[in-house]
């Protein structure tokens, strides 16, 4: 047990010595994760609302595809984006591989099905009376979208929080397309892997604590929004 305590103590010492390197890792983590959450949710939430209401041949296949996407292994997503952005790949000319942009692309791919699937479930769970009244009003999609997001606001916030949780904790995909380049594409999770591989457990623990705190702050903000939404009627 003493080994564990020694590592933890070293981790907290690292936290006190919060250097510029850790600061840049922290900001990049926040920028990439929030960007991917915003992009994935901006597409996934409206798509989830639409899919919950749409009736078309092949809908079940689309829902199944979304469910598979919710559990998509990040390394597979990373490999797919790597092939797209590789020099000889279809988007190789954009020269995005091993950049934060590539990391945002792959994490958006991971966030999207989470936001979509949870929103789909929330809208599908609306009361029949609400659904019938909404259909009766014959509103355009933008009007229905606004009402439905408001009706299932808690579900939408859960969707956004889950999407954020998925991307901020993710390591495989960003490692593949970002390359974990110090000062350029290193984020908290890849930095933890790096420190662990080199047996610098104290530093890894410190990074893990920062990751937890960051996640808690963002999710706390979403919970506050949720409580505020519940309170205003």
């Amino acid at each position: 047990m003493s080994f564990i305590f020694e590592v933890l103590a070293e981790g907290f010492r690292h936290l006190v010595d919060f250097g510029p390197n850790l600061r840049s890792i922290l900001w990049l983590t926040l920028a990439v994760s929030l960007s991917a959450t915003i992009i994935g949710s901006s597409i996934g939430v409206p798509a989830g609302v639409w899919l919950a209401q749409a009736r078309f041949r092949g809908r079940l296949a689309v829902v199944t595809f979304v469910n598979v996407g919710m559990g998509l292994p990040p390394v597979l997503a990373g490999l797919f984006v790597l092939l797209l952005l590789w020099g000889e790949g279809p988007l190789g000319g954009l020269d995005l591989l091993f950049t934060p942009t590539a990391m945002v692309i792959v994490q958006s791919m991971l966030a999207l099905p989470i936001a979509l699937g949870i929103t789909l479930g929330a809208v599908s769970g609306l009361s029949p009376a609400a659904t019938e009244q909404l259909r009766a009003l014959r509103l355009p999609f933008s009007g229905r979208l606004r009402i439905l997001i408001s009706e299932v606001r808690v579900g939408v916030l859960v969707a956004v929080a889950a999407a954020f949780g998925r991307v901020i904790a993710e390591v495989g995909a960003v490692l593949i397309v970002g390359g974990n380049i110090s000062g350029e594409t290193r984020v908290l999770t890849t930095a933890i892997v790096q420190e662990t591989r080199q047996a610098r457990f104290g530093a890894a623990i410190a990074l893990g604590i920062v990751l937890l705190v960051l996640s808690t702050i963002v999710n706390g903000g979403l919970a506050w929004l949720q409580a505020r939404g519940d309170g205003d009627g």
């Binding site: 009376a129 019938e132 009244q133 009766a136 408001s150 009627g233």
Partner: peptide, 13 residues
């Protein structure tokens, strides 16, 4: 113009 059997008001004023 159709009013369903179970009246329902959406969230808001």
């Amino acid at each position: 113009a159709y009013l369903p059997q179970i009246p329902y008001l959406f969230r808001g004023a």
